[in-house]
Simulated scan of single mutants.
Amino acid sequence: MNLGTCRFEGFATKMKLVSYNRIDGKPTRAIEETEQHFTLTRDGRIWFSGYRNENNSQE
């Protein structure tokens, strides 16, 4: 895909970034954070969520 021709028009209402910190096949310990979510909304609200272990228990 040629990103030079893709343009966004309008306003974003929500932006969510998801970061995964897992290695396939490697078991994680229950205390390790394996996933992070950062969300920003158009009205300025911001929140961060961290998840740990393979069951995605929220911290």
Rank of each mutant, 00 (worst) to 15 (best):
9 E>Y: 05
25 G>W: 04
46 I>K: 06
24 D>V: 05
54 E>W: 00
13 T>H: 08
3 L>M: 13
16 K>T: 14
47 W>P: 01
19 S>Y: 09
57 S>E: 14
23 I>T: 15
40 L>K: 03
44 G>L: 02
15 M>G: 10
45 R>M: 14
26 K>Y: 09
14 K>W: 07
38 F>G: 00
28 T>M: 04
33 E>M: 01
44 G>A: 02
40 L>R: 02
27 P>Q: 11
23 I>L: 13
7 R>C: 15
40 L>A: 08
13 T>P: 01
17 L>M: 11
53 N>C: 12
54 E>H: 03
37 H>E: 15
28 T>E: 05
15 M>V: 09
28 T>L: 03
6 C>S: 08
28 T>A: 09
23 I>F: 12
2 N>D: 15
36 Q>V: 00
6 C>M: 13
10 G>C: 05
43 D>Y: 11
27 P>S: 10
2 N>A: 07
13 T>N: 10
6 C>F: 10
11 F>D: 12
49 S>T: 04
29 R>S: 05
59 E>G: 06
36 Q>M: 02
58 Q>H: 04
52 R>T: 01
6 C>L: 14
53 N>A: 12
29 R>W: 01
39 T>W: 00
38 F>L: 08
47 W>I: 03
38 F>E: 05
14 K>S: 11
16 K>F: 05
18 V>G: 06
23 I>K: 15
45 R>W: 09
22 R>Y: 06
7 R>L: 15
52 R>Y: 02
55 N>G: 05
10 G>E: 13
3 L>T: 14
58 Q>D: 07
45 R>E: 15
47 W>K: 10
41 T>R: 11
17 L>I: 12
14 K>I: 12
4 G>A: 09
45 R>G: 11
18 V>L: 12
32 E>S: 04
38 F>P: 00
46 I>V: 05
25 G>Y: 07
1 M>P: 07
4 G>L: 04
54 E>R: 04
42 R>W: 10
52 R>C: 00
32 E>I: 02
5 T>M: 07
56 N>H: 14
10 G>S: 13
20 Y>L: 02
27 P>D: 11
27 P>Y: 06
27 P>H: 08
46 I>R: 07
50 G>D: 05
33 E>W: 03
43 D>P: 02
45 R>A: 15
32 E>W: 00
59 E>M: 02
44 G>M: 02
18 V>N: 14
35 E>L: 12
48 F>I: 01
16 K>M: 10
57 S>H: 08
39 T>D: 03
1 M>Y: 14
37 H>Q: 15
6 C>A: 09
10 G>P: 04
17 L>C: 13
55 N>Y: 04
50 G>L: 08
50 G>N: 05
30 A>D: 02
9 E>F: 06
10 G>F: 08
14 K>V: 11
16 K>N: 11
20 Y>W: 11
56 N>W: 07
59 E>V: 01
3 L>K: 13
1 M>W: 13
29 R>E: 11
5 T>W: 08
9 E>N: 07
50 G>Q: 04
42 R>T: 07
38 F>Q: 03
39 T>F: 00
3 L>R: 14
41 T>V: 09
36 Q>I: 01
28 T>Q: 06
11 F>V: 04
54 E>A: 02
17 L>S: 13
4 G>Q: 15
58 Q>Y: 02
14 K>L: 14
42 R>Y: 13
45 R>V: 14
1 M>L: 06
58 Q>I: 11
52 R>V: 00
2 N>F: 12
5 T>R: 14
31 I>C: 05
25 G>M: 04
19 S>K: 10
26 K>G: 01
10 G>T: 10
35 E>H: 15
